[in-house]
Design a protein around this nucleic acid. Sequence first.
DNA 1: TCGTTATTTCCATAAGTATGGAAATATGGA
DNA 2: TCCATATTTCCATACTTATGGAAATAACGA
Lengths: 120, 120
Amino acid sequence: MESDLAIKRLAALAQESRLAVFRLLVKAGKGGVAAGDIARALGVPANTLSAQLGVLANAGLVLSRRDGRSILYAADFDAMGALLLYLMEDCCQGRPEVCAPLAEVASRAACCSEKQGVRS
Amino acid sequence: MESDLAIKRLAALAQESRLAVFRLLVKAGKGGVAAGDIARALGVPANTLSAQLGVLANAGLVLSRRDGRSILYAADFDAMGALLLYLMEDCCQGRPEVCAPLAEVASRAACCSEKQGVRS
DNA sequence: TCGTTATTTCCATAAGTATGGAAATATGGA
DNA sequence: TCCATATTTCCATACTTATGGAAATAACGA
């Protein structure tokens, strides 16, 4: 990953309500959530939320598709994985002091994904 | 980790020259690098760099100590590890789609750190 | 003490980001 | 077609951040 893109993604997540949006979308899974429902859940005006979703989408952290009158937003898990991989490998050079504590979480995930595939 | 702190750290890294500073400090390791040497390496005026180091330090991503006339800055590996752990667990809920691809990097690091006697 | 080097703080300016009202666009249903 | 709903775009305002010149502070050696 280019550091430009990593910076864009870091900046997109570095704001309270955008991080809240992303976390909500992670919880929701691949099905996604309508923009209006996100706005209601977070108590943010629709146009403000739209701008925030725009930043996340521009950073490639969320995907959107229209469903009737609504537009469904979903977290892009691959993009987030790529960002974390960048931070671990390119930025931190795989240093054990940084990366070793992550082994348990990562291997648990790897284990689950092999056993039962993808969950939503 | 509090999401406020995570946001502070994400924001600190979400800028070109600050990310460059952090990467340089990761490369340099625990010994650290004098502020002036960082400024020279990155071609940034001393006072501008000082402000950037201030942001990184305030986010807890770098540590500093005086050494004679110089002030040595060093990456705080634990802090970076905690940020990544937060992103994997709290933010992404350990989702396999995000975290599984990180298993190899993390376990390689864990392996090396065991050899050196460092554990998490 | 003084002079030199290293770094930070102060300050102003420039640049970028966040917010939300109002209007515009898109969809589906009557 | 007309209307209601869902979302975005336009725009102005407020806020935050980045930058670097100049002065201040800190440490060392003579």
